[in-house]
Design a protein around this nucleic acid. Structure first.
Lengths: 345, 345
DNA sequence: AACTTCACTGCAATCGATTACACGAGGAGC
DNA sequence: GCTCCTCGTGTAATCGATTGCAGTGAAGTT
């Protein structure tokens, strides 16, 4: 299949390629008669610009790259969806890469996206420190925004939620439900999400006078399996806290599952909370109380920042923006106040 | 940030750009001394080829496009993951698009990918008929493989599983567990998955002498909500079948959830089966008996077909390949034979 | 000594779109 | 009638890598 080039259109319309380009891009003065002829010819031939040739000439691709730690984590896929919707409105396309939670793969993805001349990159860094060099290096080359997670040692824009504030909501809610002691289950402290959430958890627990036993902080990874494992350990240790606070919904789903298996009633014997409000969080047994992140807003801000950075060019790398949006608490049945408030389901 | 071009490398090495290109691509004869100099220069400058310039010249991008109906459906995301892994081995990159189950969006995605000169496209069509024109048109332009689902009126390669055989496994298993009547919950008959699965269901039910009440076939969409809704209708109608066969796991999760809400015991009062073996299927209450699709194999075959089509070029569009892989039944606790076989979890 | 042959290497065209610059025609101003 | 704009259009350079063709010199042949 031979593609239609601008030269063929120009020939058919009896003008030069320059004129065709001017008509189609709307720049430059063109007489009405010629404009009509060109549009006609382009229409008839079914002409489509070749984005590759254009990109070579303009070094703009109308493409944004996105790198997430794991595409199988529903939170990230819904974030990707939100970003895609926003980009579509701008007429840009999304190049998605999965880093498989490995900073080395992540670095390769980033450099490959940069080489492909994407106009900007949105990345949720896999690792709290090791992702640093690659992210910074990429950010030096082109507009880059970090999403949700944040990696140390970098100086780029960031959009996410205020994890500490979120944890305050969670802890206040648990406290209100009668909890006076709590355990925390998160991932190893290799990313900002867990760090921030744990910090917020710890601080508010202290302020509320809730006890946190040092043995009841479990760090593994963001997965259902890890939630089950950690909860099982908690059960076997025999000293159940009043509440289990999880760093994400997958972990929380594992926890409630383990509780069910061990005959521990949620929320009567132990309250459980998640984080992210993924689709499946409401399907747990019981449905999870969790923290909702305003994903659409996050996506919107991220795209806005990218666009701003593109316009600014390399000239003024001002101080980077850090936008923390406000999360909300979604109360369901895995916490006591929730169960009391909404009897039934 | 100024990018390093082949001209800068050639200058530093004191040779022409042609020679640099030959060294770096490994084609053409080059003396050992020059080769060393060039490699050194490239190394020192941190040269990276510009994929865009290369693509313009070669019309190859080492990029594959993939279009799925919904990125939030875990089945498709894990399929995407599998495809990505396979492509990585080939040194190709994946361009992922979400069609949001809308043939119009899908058509735009396809044409945009084609315009971007991807080397091939893997698509799981959103709609059983309406996706046809766009898919066929794209397939006429470049190598294309349909995955999992198949759209009528097209003549392209396809890789998926034998849905009819899968349903035979499901029905035999249910029958063995004592089921003598069954309901079916799927999506509207707008894609091959549901069609094939329903056909297999119906045929085997007949062969086994299981009754299928016409009112107990529910078609909506692939979602948990629809599963809940349909199951609720079944309950309210008051005439519960021995088994509920679902066209995918999301629906089945909705069904088991509705059963729980209505106090109907699974599998004692009604057996339930899913399809796809998504991660969450084992987390249902009870864990779902489902059909596992060999995703890695599917991905592998798809990439292999694409590569073959690329090599063949436009010259010989032979008859298209249709590769149906063999699915397996994963027995868990939502069916009686399963519960009996594996007491406990 | 004259002629091939072959291994290297460079020149320049090419992919397709964009755009700075140049040019010609027509109109305004004096 | 002459200069000076302005408008509309074409010419050609450009983006960066690849590659067909041709040229050079050295080695091998007769």
């Amino acid at each position: 299949m031979q593609r239609v080039t601008i030269a063929q259109v120009s020939e058919r319309a009896g003008v030069s390629t320059a004129t065709v380009s001017r008509v189609l891009s709307g720049k430059g003065p063109v007489s009405a008669a010629v404009e009509r002829r060109v549009r006609r010819a382009a229409e008839e031939l079914g002409y489509q610009v070749n984005p590759i040739a254009r990109a070579l000439r303009n070094s703009r691709t109308d493409t944004v790259g996105m790198v997430v730690p794991s595409i199988s984590n529903p939170f990230f896929t819904s974030l990707v969806e939100s970003v895609e919707h926003v980009l579509e409105r701008e007429g840009k396309e999304l190049f998605l890469s999965d880093a498989r939670s490995d900073p080395a793969i992540e670095a390769r993805r980033l450099s490959s996206l940069a080489a492909r001349n994407v106009d900007g990159i949105i990345v949720s860094p896999s690792h709290g420190t090791e992702s640093g060099p690659a992210v910074q290096e990429t950010a030096d080359r082109l507009p880059l925004v970090q999403l949700d997670r944040f990696v140390g040692g970098t100086n780029t824009d960031w959009v996410g939620v205020d994890d500490v504030a979120a944890m305050r909501l969670v802890m206040d809610h648990l406290h209100e439900g009668g909890a006076r002691s709590a355990a925390f289950i998160g991932s190893l402290m290799t990313n900002s999400s867990t760090e921030q959430r744990f910090a917020g958890f710890r601080r508010r627990a202290e302020e509320l006078g809730m006890s946190v036993h040092p043995d009841q902080v479990f760090l593994g990874d963001y997965s259902v399996d890890w939630g089950e494992t950690a909860a099982a350990r908690l059960v076997n240790a025999g000293n159940m806290p009043d509440a289990i606070v999880c760093a994400d919904d997958l972990i929380a789903l594992g926890v409630t599952r383990a509780c069910r298996a061990h005959g521990i009633a949620v929320p009567d014997q132990v309250q459980v909370t998640g984080y992210d409000n993924i689709e499946f969080s409401r399907l747990g047994e019981p449905a999870l109380t969790t923290v909702d992140q305003p994903r659409d807003r996050i996506a919107e801000e991220a795209v806005r920042l990218l666009a701003a950075a593109s316009r600014a060019g390399d000239t003024d790398r001002g101080p980077s923006a850090r936008i923390a949006l406000v999360p909300t608490l979604v109360v369901r049945d895995s916490t006591r106040a929730g169960a009391a408030r909404r009897p039934g389901r």
